[in-house]
Design a protein around this nucleic acid. Structure first.
Lengths: 220, 220
DNA sequence: AAGTTATGCGGACCGTGGTCCGATTAACTT
DNA sequence: AAGTTAATCGGACCACGGTCCGCATAACTT
């Protein structure tokens, strides 16, 4: 459905020697350096999207409108981001990176420096808070069923959890436990619990702590 | 968004006595008995939808096509089911009921008669198997983010889990634990684990058992 | 049986997501 | 500097989900 990607790639580029060093920089695997207008347009589009999002809310963010606001053809939007969801995901990326920094290299107990179990305990609340802070975006960018589990951000969270779990004395199937933890942080779920069912954030957080404890403690 | 439902309802029906008994049957709360052609069309639509689903797959199930196949106007489809998702949900309903019967009144250990902990242990595998059996439908009928947690089927599963959990010696926040369990059975998640990540069903099942055990066992 | 009402019907209509292909132009070659 | 190539651009185009409103008719009233 998406691009054949089967271009033979028998290099008729500068090849053997011509633009040697920087070619390594831009093309790790034979990729092409993107054209100047392409990156310019990408930036314009993201900017326009963010602006419209702020003004009209995510629901009214139409692809046509983004294209118009960015003064760019509609086709360009789809070329750059694949589909509406891709655009939203790209927007989300920025926020997500801040979260990632926090648990990859931020201060303990979330970041490195604290015992794994404490980092695990801190992870849930951090994610919940982060997602509730950027709720609209996270809800709007929710991918459709099949792709939901494959979104890169999820992958990172997943392996982070798995690594931490493995450092505890847990006897469980670590991979699965990570999935379980991940699932319990699902944005729409958390949102629903807080908004429609009246769970306090504190309750959710202590629920998370409890879950972590139970998963990281060997059964008697 | 859906019907005002504010009709005053000062009963100009047969009222005080005319069609007394069956009126109670059809109108529990003053509701109107649906018109004959309405129920006929509803049936025709569900039938047509099922047929198309079997033939072309869920992805190609367009509302126009269903209307045409049922020899009915397009408006009727939307009137009856609200939106595409409503139609899918209605289709799903039938299968879901079979599952519900199984854990509400079927044979133990899934149904009543076995200790709560065993029923809990049996619940996960039953749901997973059921959803994987009707995978296409369950995936297609996945509601969009906001409504996902509110779908009736989910409510029933939730309270069932909560009730069983309360019957064990669990010390946890039962409501939350039920949500966690529910989340770990999410159809797209299970599907993804099995298909893309190569988890065996057996592994998922024993993962479920483990999770139940940990949630239903008091912490030391 | 005929009249009245309000419920359901149907298909023209609209907005939006997504595709396609000819014109355009950046990057590389000579 | 001019030419070549291949990727980008852009907007006309399409399909599908969802709405609307005048018409038909089932169910109730007399």
């Amino acid at each position: 459905m998406r691009m054949s990607a089967g271009t033979p790639r028998i290099g008729p580029t500068g090849d053997t020697l011509a633009g040697p060093v920087e070619l390594d920089l831009t093309s790790v695997d034979g990729e092409r350096r993107p054209r100047a207008d392409a990156v310019r347009n990408r930036a314009k589009l993201l900017d326009a999207a963010a602006r419209l999002m702020a003004d009209c809310g995510a629901a009214n963010l139409t692809m046509d409108a983004v294209a118009a606001e960015a003064e760019v053809g509609k086709g360009t939007v789809f070329r750059r981001f694949g589909d509406r969801n891709g655009l939203l995901l790209a927007l989300l990326d920025h926020e997500e990176q801040r979260l990632q920094e926090a648990f990859l290299s931020g201060p303990p107990p979330l970041g490195p420096g604290a015992p794994a179990i404490d980092r695990l305990r801190a992870f849930g609340p951090a994610v919940m808070r982060h997602e509730l802070d950027n709720l609209e975006l996270y809800l709007a960018a929710e991918p459709p069923a099949e792709r939901r589990c494959v979104v890169p951000a999820r992958g990172l969270r997943r392996s982070h959890l798995a690594i931490l779990l493995r450092m505890t004395e847990a006897t469980t199937d670590v991979e699965l436990a990570a999935e379980t933890l991940l699932a319990s942080l699902d944005t729409p779920l958390v949102h629903h619990l807080v908004e429609q069912r009246g769970f306090s954030l504190a309750r959710l957080e202590s629920g998370w702590q409890d879950l972590v404890t139970r998963l990281a403690t060997p059964l008697p």
